[in-house]
Design a protein around this nucleic acid. Structure first.
Lengths: 145, 145
DNA sequence: TTGCTCCTCACGTCACGTGAGGTGGC
DNA sequence: TTGCTCCTCACGTCACGTGAGGTGGC
């Protein structure tokens, strides 16, 4: 049993690049493990898995512009998957692991498609900007010659 | 004098892919020509230049995640530039046009740099996702064989 | 004249920001 | 014990959404 390092909310916020308020808000929305055994008023504690999760949420939010409502849906998908795993966890057999992986693959594929679509839109924008810059520079050369 | 087509706010909203409320809000913030001669209560009218401007604002907002406050700054830059042009407009000489172009170029260059940075971040994300997908598929093949 | 779209308030909402006032761990 | 970070309300803000009630143009 490895003792994972326990981080406080401020450290997590710094590492992820958000504020403590945002982390509490995401917990309130159910985007993070709700940590049932924490007694009211006591400090929240996080580990590296939580940091990885938050970083992914923030990236989906910022780079893809996904709303928190949509993030909750994705999380629900993931949780349904987790539930599936828990139910079959007594018999950690191959059928179990296969179904988990088969659920995870289309989720990642959807994310990948969103990333690529966004890149295409940006490439279009980039092309327009380079075009405008080229014509501006052409015009400038014509005038300064 | 070409009679530019006059569009109403709903048509503009449809074409740009936003709502009329958003257009009014942007006008309120000073992101669109404030149209001084419109009497209170009468309909707003737009032309193709307004549509182009709105489309660019929306793209900067959505693809680059730029806040409206920052968009206002950019608009102020552009307006200062416009002011410069107006002041020297009596003598539409080369020095005038050169200064305008020399002001426009770094503005476009900054936008281009932002677009490329965003693309780099997305490429990084894309690489991670393809990596995860590859290992998921490897795992699946190992289990189903 | 009849719809339809537009107008102006004005309150609601989402995703947090920002104190106020108080408690907990090195 | 002294700071420092944490806690929980709770109100503020940004970027609009969403009616309410009324007016204007084909």
């Amino acid at each position: 049993m490895t003792t994972a390092r326990q981080l406080r909310i401020g450290d997590v916020a710094d590492e992820v690049g958000i504020t403590a308020r945002t982390i509490r808000y995401y917990e309130e929305l159910g985007l993070l493990g709700t940590d049932d055994e924490r007694s009211k008023g006591s400090h929240r504690l996080y580990d590296d898995a939580d940091i990885a999760r938050l970083k992914e949420l923030v990236r989906l939010r910022d780079l893809l512009g996904i709303s928190l409502e949509q993030l909750i849906e994705l999380a629900d998908d993931a949780r349904a998957q987790q539930c599936l795993r828990d139910r079959w966890h007594a018999s950690t057999d191959d059928a179990d692991r296969i179904s988990i992986i088969e659920a995870a693959i289309p989720l990642r594929e959807r994310q990948l498609e969103l990333v690529r679509e966004r890149k295409r839109n940006l490439s279009e924008f980039e092309a327009e900007l380079t075009g405008k810059l080229a014509s501006l520079r052409r015009e400038l050369r014509k005038l300064t010659r």
